[in-house]
Design a protein around this nucleic acid. Structure first.
Length: 418
RNA sequence: GUGGGCGUAGCUCAGUCGGUAGAGCUCCUGGUUGUGGUCCAGGCGGUCGGGGGUUCGAGUCCCCUCGCUCACCCCA
């Protein structure tokens, strides 16, 4: 035998037994997001590398080391999409969606790619469901967006969910704040962890996440973004919180909440589940008021989030899905004539919109009955060379019938006929 | 990229001090009832992740390597 190939590291097959639960995520997303006026969008699986370099940010881990980048036959640098927001902003600009009633509300479900070491809840190809509202900076957009994700997770029975929110301010106050933070870190450089020191200029906000004792001590005294918000940003944040309060949505304000992508402004949030392992983030997002413009469109504020399908499934309880019922299983008890006749019976049943299955493996009659029971068939037609029998699998009753009348009989008995 | 754990049939696993590979489940066949979900019997199925070494002999010991997995990091 030749060497057996495996799915690449960090990827997985969705087998039939798993696919029903994933479909439940999709239909819940359609229900929750569609119900709020979001419409589905699909963008390409790969994009110009430039899109992510500019949109996500050069200093991010995603751009620095996690992208699947390749050159196509025409010498263009392309990248398998590592996230969904930048492509959607690109589409917004490309299709002139600023002419539509604002905000334009879009949702998506698809797979994304990041070159990382796989672990529980983290894969190289993974699926995300996401929502973006572009074209309004109203705090109601932020609150509604957050609430929609919380609702979606609730409907999918994701366990032990916690919501944290914060605000990063707008670019100018963020730049000023950043300078103060860097100065503070510089002043205490020798007390910081090595990896934090290396990133002082690249991404000083990361220092808040460190669990290094010396660093934590330094960060206790560090200036916090949330205290440095401009009056307008502080007001925006307060409005978002007031609306979450009004909706009865619990949350905690996390002044150190840092998201790993550069485009965020103002509101950021994260939903985590304690039912998960180390990768406890189920979904998160925030506002990105400068992104569309940065990608060459006209200025348009935006707000959105993404949630990991695998993590949703991991954090949701096991929910048994009932196997679908089969109306008719057509068994063969005879030679070639019987086989052909059986084929015709199954075909006729399907034309009558019945769920009909045919014996396809040359099993013994006993084996065929076993198979019929396995697929939860309601009736079994045992088709012979000259005559046939129809068996009710629930009652065990079996009657001899003309082969040609099998489908009509079932339709009559089940009340499926016209 | 760095650590820890683990790699024996499709799946879950056993394999004693190194002696030449087993169970349960699944699947197929037959019997029990002329044809199902019970029970019984049988069958299919494994280069013991791969390579090298020690040994008369390695699934068992040593080295290397690959893979899976959890964690760091980061995020969905």
């Amino acid at each position: 035998m030749a060497e057996r190939l495996q799915a690449p590291r960090g990827t997985f097959d969705v087998l039939p037994d798993d696919s029903e639960r994933r479909e439940a995520v999709e239909s819940a997303a359609r229900r929750v997001l569609g119900g709020a006026g979001y419409r589905r969008i699909e963008t390409p699986a790969f994009e110009a590398t430039e899109l992510f370099a500019r949109g996500v940010g050069d200093s991010t881990d995603i751009v620095q080391k996690e992208m699947y980048t390749f050159e196509d036959g025409g010498g263009r640098s392309l990248t398998l999409r590592p996230e969904g927001t930048a492509p959607i902003c690109r589409a917004y600009a490309e299709h002139g969606m600023h002419r539509l009633p604002q905000p334009v509300k879009l949702w998506y479900l698809g797979s994304f790619f990041r070159y990382e070491r796989a672990q529980a809840g983290r894969y190289r190809q993974f699926w995300q469901v996401g929502a973006e509202a572009i074209g309004s900076d109203d705090p109601a957009v932020d609150a509604e967006s957050i609430l929609l994700l919380a609702t979606l997770l609730d409907e999918l029975d994701v366990r032990e969910v916690r919501l944290r929110i914060g605000s990063l301010g707008s670019p100018d106050s963020r730049v000023a704040y950043r300078e103060r933070l860097v100065a503070h870190l510089r002043a205490h450089e020798e007390e910081l962890a090595e990896e934090v020191r290396v990133r002082i200029d690249l991404n000083p906000l990361r220092a808040f996440d460190s669990d290094h004792p010396g660093t934590r001590e330094v960060m206790r005294e560090a200036p916090r973004m949330i205290d440095a918000l401009s009056p307008q940003d502080a007001e925006h944040f307060a409005a978002v919180r007031a609306m979450l309060d009004a909706a009865g949505q619990p949350y905690e304000v996390d002044p150190t909440l840092v998201r790993g992508l550069d485009y965020y402004t103002r509101t950021v949030f994260e939903l985590t589940s304690d039912a998960l392992g180390a990768q406890s983030g189920v979904g998160g997002g925030g506002r990105y008021d400068g992104l569309v413009e940065q990608l060459g469109g006209r200025q348009a504020p935006g707000m959105g989030w993404a949630a990991g399908v695998e993590r949703i499934l991991l954090a949701a309880g096991e929910q048994p899905v009932a196997a679908p019922e089969v109306d008719l299983f057509v068994a063969v008890d005879g030679g070639d004539g019987a086989r052909t006749a059986a084929f015709a019976v199954a075909a006729e049943g399907r034309r009558a919109r019945m769920h009909a299955q045919l014996e396809l493996a040359g099993r013994s009659l006993k084996g065929q009955l076993k198979q019929a029971a396995r697929v939860r068939a309601r009736y079994v037609a045992v088709v012979g060379d000259t005559s046939s029998a129809l068996r009710d699998m629930d009652t065990g009753e079996q009657t001899d019938v003309e082969t040609e009348t099998i489908v009509a009989r079932i339709l009559r008995e089940r009340g499926l006929g016209a």
